[in-house]
Design a protein around this nucleic acid. Sequence first.
DNA 1: CTGAAAGCGCTTACAG
DNA 2: CTGAAAGCGCTTACAG
Lengths: 340, 340
Amino acid sequence: MEKVSIRDVASRAGVSVSTVSRALSRPEMVSESTRRKIQAIAEELDFSVSRTAGNLKSGKSRRIALLVGSNKIEWFTANIMEGLNSVILDQGYDLVFYPISSVEDRRAFFEELPVRNNVDAVIISSFTATAKEITRLHSAHVPLVGINSPSTLNFSATVHTSDRTGMKLAIRHLSLLGHRKILYIYQTFHSSIKFSSYGRIQAFKDACAKKPGITGIVKSFENPHEAFDALTTGILSEDDPPTAVCVHQDSQALPFLFRAQSIGLSIPDDLSIMGYDDSSFAQDVGLTTIRQDPYAMGREAASKALQLIESREPEIQHEEFPVELVVRRSTGEIRKHQLF
Amino acid sequence: MEKVSIRDVASRAGVSVSTVSRALSRPEMVSESTRRKIQAIAEELDFSVSRTAGNLKSGKSRRIALLVGSNKIEWFTANIMEGLNSVILDQGYDLVFYPISSVEDRRAFFEELPVRNNVDAVIISSFTATAKEITRLHSAHVPLVGINSPSTLNFSATVHTSDRTGMKLAIRHLSLLGHRKILYIYQTFHSSIKFSSYGRIQAFKDACAKKPGITGIVKSFENPHEAFDALTTGILSEDDPPTAVCVHQDSQALPFLFRAQSIGLSIPDDLSIMGYDDSSFAQDVGLTTIRQDPYAMGREAASKALQLIESREPEIQHEEFPVELVVRRSTGEIRKHQLF
DNA sequence: CTGAAAGCGCTTACAG
DNA sequence: CTGAAAGCGCTTACAG
């Protein structure tokens, strides 16, 4: 059985190619009897329309590119993808994933713009491009939607959550529990891409600075396992050590939680720990965290992209999604005679 | 700046469209001077070749579909995708993700075969289609590659790991530690798709049956949190309770680990716990597990798909990937006077 | 090394 | 309601 094209169906049905095309894509334009015959034959021949041809005609590719600053698909990215897929697949669009893990990747991407005639919209998650790079996209008439982009400049539309709000919630929560010295830890980024996550670190510092009596300390680590030990030792040896720790994201908090317990610290009595994200297992381990909803952001980014593709301006060009404090067992009141 | 086509470049360079096409896709066929001029003009005009047109000509779409039995992208699927991407992106192929979450979805997919003229290969991960469905794919000349498919029948090629081997390793490990009564727990699947994971459960039963003196019990649960309590209560109230638990996959073991600890069980002294996968956090929490490598399987599946697209038979049609026992802190020797 | 022409598989104004 | 024809943007035998 060789490839069957619209012509095979036409000749078999004794009608023109145009009629077959109409019968299949705009059936109301064709008389019932011919339509029926054509549809029967199409089924019999296992024929289905090639999108490529239609795309050529329309000048659209029915594809949307997702640029992510890493080739790892972790919780956040997976949820973004699920959200995007949940809206675009039904509209006949496909998602194409482009991992961009270095400034060089990014430059290559925007210089070659493989996307120009090959994608109807570009969505960038959690990093940004230079103004010049973005301009080139625009000049190719490709809408650009940002997700948690460090800057919204030049984007056709964006969705984001506020790290400032998130960190404010975290600091207030800890402050209410009586904590005064708070440590922020994150795993060093090894990408040359400017991640939006850096903003979270700054947001922590600012939130602490604004809250009188609170001291915020920021430390980074390379490898969770060795470094946690070093950090813990550091904490233990200080005279006035932090009583609470904010971890950059839930997935990095998990090993910390275990490490802390394994050296005999009881959580939250000896140390309060907070994560960020409310990702899948945060509930399982009782981690207090700041919830964000990348699935919802993905859906909205997709719908904005779709609108832009149809040359409609989204009602809200830059949309903020809420963050929420989720209190669980890993944070608690500071104790009078805290272990440290 | 309007859409620029190959014609614009040609007229600007004073050459024919054919020459521009060659200068860009097979530069060695064009004299250096014309090539240079054309490339300069292409760059100046921000021109890049539309893939769609080329695809029409070649009859290929340069896209590979990944069918997954869920719209959630969890550890396994994410790693498969990363593996696939790591080989196909460089070859100019894109990955298209089709979540298939019900038998209806699946039937719709294979009946409409949106894929027929629109995708060069189909990769199915962890579930399978009926023989008839697969035949239709074949008749459309679309190679089908399976990943951990319950049956390898009719697949052009497959990659898989052996759950039998994995469970054998697990049972041997526990048996060597002195465990005699072993519980297997898994979260109920709510999909109507036949997942490959069911095989793992059977493999557990078989492994226990083959090992004299070992009793294996299988239980499922709906919601991790309520159900773990019920299970634990059940365990605690039995006269001769299991001393070790195998959890279907690491992500389901995590809550169990925490639950167990929260009711005062010490792991592994009171209870040994094993996972399956060796996913990201297994190391963090010290979970003994069976390691599999979906990233490597994804890479191999991709390379088999690519070979099949080029009508080459893969050297190994059905390739098995190793599983490995990874011993960590969550399993230990059975104690003389085990708590239960 | 280069150009004119055919054609990939459709869709869609334009006529009838 | 239907058909003939043009055309989407390229690639590639075929000539020269």
